[in-house]
Amino acid sequence: MTMVTPPHITHLARRERWSRAEIAFWLAWLAVYFLLPKHLMFAAQILITGLFALSLDLILGYAGIVTLGHAAFFGLGAYTAGLLTKVGVIEPVLGLFGAALVAGTFGFLTSFLVLRGRDLSRLMITLGIGLLLFELANRLTDITGGVDGLQGIAVGKVLGLFEFDLFGKTAYLYVLVVSFGLFVVARALMTAPYGLSLRAIRDNQQRAVAIGIPIRVRLTNIYTLGAVIAGVAGALLTQTTQFVAIDSFGFQRSADLLIMLLIGGTATLYGGFVGACAFLIAQNWLSSINAEYWLFWLGILLIVATRYLRGGVIGGMAKLAALRPMGKKA
């Protein structure tokens, strides 16, 4: 029996199929392990930041919730993972669960404050919550180490089997596996009816209500999930660097994250990773010349990007890809 898939189904399925570019993307990260052994720590940092940006993409890109304080969850995860080792929980995967739990709970509770208002009050409340946590970490020096950060974190073997080594090999694979795992979950959610309902809410809340979508429940839900993933990203950074800097909570981190997502492209799932990659490499290069230099060009990039770079790198590539078949026809 031959079944021809109708074009409208093919069109829907395009979003769901793993494309070659996607497979190549993840294989490239695997290749990094073998080809760039000297840069594994940096590569792990990019992956962690990419994962963090993915968590923002879920709530901002897919659900349309604007936030200036997403670093709150990253910082909570980072400190939770660090503090857990101090009380004897040194197994990293347990640390991730602890971080996820704390960040998720905080995300769930604050979602009710954040989702009440419109854009402006959302921005201010998330900004306020982020600054609040920063100040808290700054003041509670006995627990957090204050401005010096949380030091002396001893991380155990992953699952009691794999020890973190000096070259960051274990750390890199650990980060890659966790990031990929969470990515697969996020991807499944976004291609499922659930993800479609989020895109509907982002596009038009009024109509989303009118077709029967319980928007408050959905938004609370995705906000919490975004917090969980951000918390895990924070915990990964703590475990692989064995240090928590107070600027985990900083406004700069929230702002940088927005920028990365903007560079990469929102609501693409990969925008965060691509943006983190471009951002961190550029930052590494430019701030090695001069720290102010970096901030300056970052600012210029933002000013230009809001006007000319809609859709980010991924959006731009998609536009190019869309041009090609048209060129063939001509």
Partner: peptide
């Protein structure tokens, strides 16, 4: 699973 994890198609 139908709602959250399995693809729309």
């Amino acid at each position: 699973f139908d709602r959250r994890l399995f693809p729309l198609t």
